[in-house]
Every structure is written in structure tokens, then in C-alpha cells.
Design a protein around this nucleic acid. Structure first.
Length: 419
DNA sequence: TCGAGACCTAAGGA
DNA sequence: ATCCTTAGGTCTC
């Protein structure tokens, strides 16, 4: 065990039930900024600890984790069933490995940023110092599937509540921390049946109740969690196709699952905001009322051509970075919405951005370059040099921040679409 | 292919 | 106060 010392933690550790030891995982904030990663809408289960809002508490790998970050390390503490026998060095090493894998630290964000900046000058120009440390988590695919089924036509606050209810009603207790009981995400089998659907409707899941019970049944019929896990091995297109056979999982949710829990870094979830804004800048899509399968493909193909094999990461990074920008600047209690304007000089070298490159991290690559020429035509029709005004509305509450994603993403797409 | 409408609920704005 | 819209969509015609 590595004891964490110093005043930084003294107040934190003195709380009842917090006497246990801390461990450390060396990592710079350049590679991961946990406060951003844990709150940007990838996982719905992380909360700031009540006794210390600098610390985060959540669950993965059937354990409860408390995480806290310094400039050079993540300090973590683990709670699990059978805590009494816990605490030997072997567990420490194992947990450190689990944390490393959860944050996918084998992927060098610094390397990716460099690559994205080469391909896309807005990456270098926009908020380069602001969006450091934003990366994809490697989440459990069962939890991911059902969490994002809950996400349709919904807001993050309610999605989080629903996920918590699923755990509370159907999950196994893991541990009690600071007087609060934490439950594991339920197994697929637990979510099958009409009783579940009825119960979830009572719990205000709405039409998602049926989707959850039926998807659980379908997964089990297909071979259970192994079938789901095996989608990691069948390639992105096939995995997405298979996921979309599950009730309540359409293109967007399938892409969320592919990106966040199946390891397909090229998957790009296109939500309603992204679409509304994208069609302003991809002219031939503007006439479409709704996001069709075809237009969805065109949008994602475009971003894949621009950002490469980790396009899903790039997209999420920019998405989260803008949210983080809001959080940092707009901390006010009185709901005032000051706006700041800045300009970004978009001076682009078309040929450079259109050039296709290989992945820079060891990972199976998929060939999605067949439409490169078409995308290039679609997206190079504007002037190569423009000044784009960026507007950030400053808000405080999470829900409000989410609400402003439209304006936020405009910032990003505004630039991207004018390549 | 694309468009329209229904689907549950809750919160915020007009 | 009440209606309306929106929130990280999906499914059926």
C-alpha cells in the first residue's frame, strides 16, 4: 500500500470510513483529466464525493472506486465485496491495472493530438490548452448498452437516475461508502421479463422499459454476455449492425456502444445537435428534415476521413472540451449568461487535411477511405481562409451546459465544416 | 430512401 | 398557470 500524505489529503482521509490506504497510478494530466472524462457523458455513474468535491466516486469492474488526481498521479481507493481480506500487494497491482485499462492509458493522447493537429488545424488553433486529458473510457458493454438505451429522448440527469435505479433494483451490492450503498450494474439475465418491464414503467422509464427487457432477452437468446463481448472481434461495421438488431438500439446508440465499450475508436455517435449543425455546413444535407441512415453515414465518413482511425476519440474530445471550457469560465450562481467572443483563424491547407494517414497507435485498422474523394468534394467548396466567430455561453448547472451543446458544437463544426 | 408521428417523463421557458 | 419544447433517439408506416 502506498500511503498518501500531505495536507492535500488530510482533510479527505479523516472522514469516517475513509481510513484505508490510497494507491497511486502515475499519469500526467496531459494524458487524462479525470474530472472531465468522468463527467462528459460517457459514463453515467460517476459523482463527486460529498465530502470532497475534488474526488470522484463510481463503479467499474464490480468495485467501487474513489479517484483523486494530482499533476503527476491518480490516487485511488477501492471498495469491494469481502473487503476484510483485501489489502495485500497483489490486489493493489491488480487494481492499478484495472484503472489503467479503464482509462485506456496505453493509448497515447499526446500522440493522437499531434496527429489530429496535423490533419485538422482547428485542433491546434481552437482550445489546445483546454482540452488536454480528454479520452475515451473502456466501459463494460452490458452497462453501456442499457445506459444508452435510456439515453434516447432524454437528458443526462434523468439518464443517470435511471441507471442508478437499474443498479439499485437489480444489481448486487458492492460496498457501503460514506453511508451510501453502491450496487453493481445488473447482469443481463436480471433484466429479462414482463415483471421487469412493469417495474421499470412504474419507475418512470417510459417506453424504454420495454426496450430494456426485450433487449436483455434478445442478448441472452443470442448467447448472453459472451455474444455481446464477442462483438469486439467482428469488426466495426458488423458489430454496429448486430447491435442495431436489439430493440431500442438505433444507429446512434450502437455507435456509442461501439466507441465506448467495444473498442471501435472509429465509431462516431451523431446526435441531434451534431446533425442540426452539420447540415448547415454540409450543404447537400441541409434539405433533410431528419437524420437518415444515409446522411448519418456521410457525416461520420467525413469525420473519419478528416481525423483518421481514432475519429470517435477526436469527436468526443472536441465535444467534451467545449463543455469543459464552459465549466471553467462560467461559474456563476445567478444564472447569468455572459458571453465571450473569440475568433479563430482558419487558414487551411486542403491537401494536407485530405491526405489519408495510417493509425499511429497499434490497433486494428478498418479501411474507411473509399469515399475520400467524394467527401473532399463536398467539404472543400468554401473559402480556405475564414475568420469564424466563436460564442460560448457561460452557464453553471450540468443540465444547462448540456442545453448549450448546440452552440458549443457549432464552434467545432463551424470550423470543421469549412475545411 | 425519406418524412411524419408516436413514444414516457420532467424540467425550463414563453 | 398552462402550454410548448427539448432532452446525447428509435420504430413503424
Amino acid at each position: 500500500m502506498v500511503a498518501v500524505k500531505g495536507s492535500f489529503y488530510s482533510s479527505f482521509c479523516k472522514h469516517r470510513g475513509m481510513e484505508g490506504s490510497w494507491n497511486t497510478l502515475p499519469v500526467s494530466r496531459t494524458e487524462v483529466e479525470i474530472s472531465t472524462v468522468l463527467s462528459c457523458g460517457q459514463s453515467f455513474r460517476w459523482k463527486q464525493l460529498e465530502s470532497d468535491d475534488k474526488a470522484w466516486i463510481g463503479t467499474f469492474s464490480h468495485k467501487v472506486w474513489i479517484l483523486k488526481q494530482t499533476d503527476t498521479e491518480i490516487h485511488f481507493k477501492v471498495f469491494q465485496q469481502g473487503m476484510e481480506e483485501n489489502g495485500d500487494k497483489l490486489d493493489d497491482e491488480k487494481n492499478r491495472g484495472l484503472l489503467y485499462d479503464y482509462f485506456q492509458l496505453e493509448v497515447s493522447l499526446e500522440t493522437l493530438y499531434k496527429e489530429w493537429s496535423k490533419r485538422d488545424e482547428r485542433f491546434a488553433n481552437l482550445t489546445i490548452q483546454d482540452y488536454r486529458g480528454i479520452r475515451m473510457l473502456d466501459q463494460d458493454c452490458v452497462e453501456n448498452v442499457f445506459s444508452f438505451i435510456c439515453s434516447s429522448n432524454n437528458n443526462i440527469a434523468r439518464i443517470s437516475q435511471m441507471v442508478e435505479k437499474l443498479c439499485l433494483h437489480y444489481g448486487v451490492k458492492i460496498a457501503e461508502v460514506e453511508g451510501k450503498t453502491y450496487y453493481d450494474f445488473p447482469t443481463v439475465e436480471k433484466l429479462i421479463g414482463e415483471k421487469v418491464e412493469k417495474k421499470l414503467r412504474e419507475e418512470k422509464f417510459g417506453y424504454r422499459a420495454g426496450f430494456i427487457a426485450k433487449t436483455a432477452a434478445t442478448i441472452v437468446a443470442n448467447g448472453g454476455v459472451n455474444w455481446l463481448e464477442n462483438l469486439k472481434n467482428v469488426g466495426y461495421d458488423e458489430a454496429r449492425k448486430q447491435l442495431q438488431t436489439l430493440p431500442g438500439i438505433g444507429r446512434k446508440v450502437a455507435d456509442c456502444v461501439c466507441l465506448m465499450s467495444l473498442g471501435y475508436s472509429e465509431a462516431i455517435p451523431v446526435d441531434t445537435h451534431m446533425h442540426q449543425i452539420a447540415k448547415k455546413y454540409l450543404p447537400h444535407l441541409a434539405k433533410l428534415k431528419t437524420l437518415t441512415d444515409k446522411s448519418y453515414s456521410e457525416i461520420t465518413d467525413y469525420f473519419r476521413a478528416l481525423h483518421g482511425d481514432y475519429a470517435g476519440w477526436a469527436h468526443s474530445v472536441l465535444f467534451a472540451s467545449t463543455l469543459r471550457h464552459l465549466k471553467k469560465d462560467g461559474v456563476t450562481e445567478n444564472k447569468e449568461t455572459a458571453t465571450t467572443e473569440e475568433t479563430v483563424d482558419v487558414n487551411l491547407d486542403k491537401s494536407k487535411n485530405a491526405k489519408s494517414k495510417k493509425s499511429i497507435v497499434e490497433k486494428p485498422t478498418t479501411d474507411s477511405s473509399t469515399k475520400d474523394d467524394k467527401q473532399r468534394r463536398n467539404c472543400t467548396s468554401r473559402e480556405s481562409k475564414e475568420t469564424i466567430p466563436l460564442r460560448f455561453e457561460q452557464v453553471t448547472q450540468n443540465s444547462q451546459q448540456i442545453r448549450t451543446f448546440a452552440s458549443v458544437i457549432r464552434t467545432f463544426l463551424c470550423a470543421v465544416a469549412k475545411v
